[in-house]
Amino acid sequence: MIDFIQMLLSGVAVGSSYALMGLAMVLIYKTSEVVNFAQGEMALVSVFMTYLVLATHGWPFHLAFPAALVFSFFLGCFLEWAVLRRAKTPNILSMIIITIGIEMILLGLVSWKFGADPKTLPFPIGPYDAFMIGDLFISELEIMTLVLALAIMAGLFLFLRYTRFGMAMKATQQNPVAARLMGIRVNRILMVTWGISAGVGCVAGLLIAPTVMSPFMMWDPMLKGFAGAVLGGMTSLPGAVAGAYIVGVVENLFGGYVSTEFKSVVAFVIIVVVLCVKPSGLLARHYVKKV
């Protein structure tokens, strides 16, 4: 029993970083219908920039982390403005190719500048700092990941629900032409969406970095986050979060009880099953788009 709860807990913890990646991808997908495969590498660049200022230039944490967020925000804005917006007559396929291109360029840049060998990001909490509740082993980093993930989700929810800019983001998602007719600057909304999404991804990256840090560190979380988002329906923020937690938990349980080798694969098995049974995802609610 204690094993089960322990696995559940680690599943939730790892699910939190998937959830952040999933959220980031859904934010972009909802506004611009682009599946952003560069999401992980955008976070990666931010993480390595943080590493640079922390390890090489000796910035303090309280400066470096906000700086990383600001940097990632502008990185997201820049990519949207410089690359995505330039695409003439965009369709889903070409957009995917573009984001994969961005992904490879960013990955290449990071590998070239920092080398492919693993690093350690200086972090206020070590990956092995932990405490015990009864027989349960809980790492502080996991708690922090969970709390931050929940805080960001709540923040996003409030932002989309109660601010004018958030509402304009939703309006743009639902009907870009009508949004323009309201005087909403749709291009600016798209750009800021990319910025916010990159920021969310950056937080995920920074929380993963103390455990693994190499140019390939974001691949797995991004794919799992994407898997969670698809599971949740790709257009629903709560859906993406729920989906990501399901992926995290099931993966951990599978790893514990069945086989560690196939742990990573199980996420995708769930997706296949869900898509067969309920193709629109678990939590998606749509009005059918008129063509």
Binding site: K170, A171, Q174, N175, A178, A179, Y287, K290
Partner: peptide, 10 residues
């Protein structure tokens, strides 16, 4: 616009 074009999910 023609065909209303309201924001369905607002």
């Amino acid at each position: 616009p023609e065909g209303r074009e309201v924001f369905n999910e607002l």
